[in-house]
Design a protein around this nucleic acid. Structure first.
Lengths: 182, 182
DNA sequence: GTTGCCATGTAAGGTGTTACATGATTTA
DNA sequence: TAAATCATGTAACACCTTACATGGCAAC
């Protein structure tokens, strides 16, 4: 459902090939899921059949032919309709919390190691997010408001990881205090 | 992958039927996904075939027979092995952010309505979370440390929604300011 | 008399992941 | 000479959701 509109959205910004889209998904934090060929190429065929995009084949010397997709008027109005639809709650699956749920099976050292591994991974992701410049940034935005929205999307991800970091650090600290007191 | 260990974990806490599990999943915030029959009953058959749980059939007057599942020694060691495995990053999909990405298509009123709908939904979820008492709480925990861990799992969810609320409120406020200034 | 609880399951479909397949060109 | 880039696509599998199916009992 959402990959379709994610692609349509990117095509509303500029014309792109499947290969371009694949790279944009791979670079995007918000859309890290499904940078995979299968869905992208199949979705492009679907969008084309629905008349939401057009396809132009460009031959190249020394490289394979490219299929450049562009959004149609119908595609733009479909996208706008989706953007206006009632938002759903974010979908968060945190397998680490399921591990923690039964982590009383572990001794203190094992538990601290586990929590430390989680902290390291979250920290790494947090730093990567801040270091990496986003493909959709102020330089390519079409209006100041669009630039603002894109900045806030990035901030949403940063505060998510910041929150996760604060939480895991508190957990480790309090577990350490339980050890020395109890 | 994870539903298997989610079920194994619950069975490590006490013996349960598929129906019991279904209700626990439905009540759980962390495991709200897959409260559905299909996976639960199929996973129980798999776990039984792997020798990780045992099955006892209990006949009842006036009610259908129940299949009570209990974890085995092998099941406990398998669970412990999984709990010790390297944690993965949380998996967050927020379709609302994809809507926002192309929300420059909307006028100010439409955008504020959209953001308002998101705020309402997040607020509702946040309040439900705080009101509802969790099935796995201090009263049924086996050790103080387990009670602490369960409390922290709950806190993780609460801070997630709190963070989301702060973010969307900031967005709405700043969009309002952009309107009056620009 | 319709809804909800108890309790089990199956069928069909949608979505997402990983790996495979091709093949020339450039970079390390 | 091994890997990465450009560029398309398919196949197989894993996972998850929704709806269907049965059937007695209790509550409103």
């Amino acid at each position: 459902m959402s990959i379709k509109y994610a692609i349509l959205g990117l095509l509303s910004w500029r014309s792109l090939t499947g290969y371009d889209l694949k790279k944009m998904f791979a670079d995007s934090v918000a859309l890290y899921w499904s940078g995979n060929n299968n869905q992208i190429y199949r979705t492009l065929v679907d969008l084309h059949e629905e008349g939401l995009v057009t396809q132009e084949i460009q031959q190249q010397d020394n490289y394979p032919a490219r299929k450049i997709y562009s959004i149609t008027e119908k595609g733009i109005s479909r996208l706008k309709k989706w953007v206006l639809s009632k938002p759903e709650l974010p979908d968060l699956k945190n397998a680490f919390l399921v591990q923690l749920e039964w982590a009383d099976l572990l001794d203190l050292e094992e538990l601290d190691t586990l929590a430390g591994e989680y902290e390291d991974e979250v920290l790494m992701q947090f730093m990567m997010l801040q270091a990496k410049e986003q493909p959709l940034n102020a330089a390519v935005a079409r209006t100041p408001r669009e630039a603002y929205l894109w900045g806030m999307i990035r901030e949403s991800w940063i505060t998510f990881y910041q929150n996760e970091l604060n939480w895991i650090r508190k957990l480790r600290k309090e577990l350490g205090e339980m050890e020395s007191n109890g």
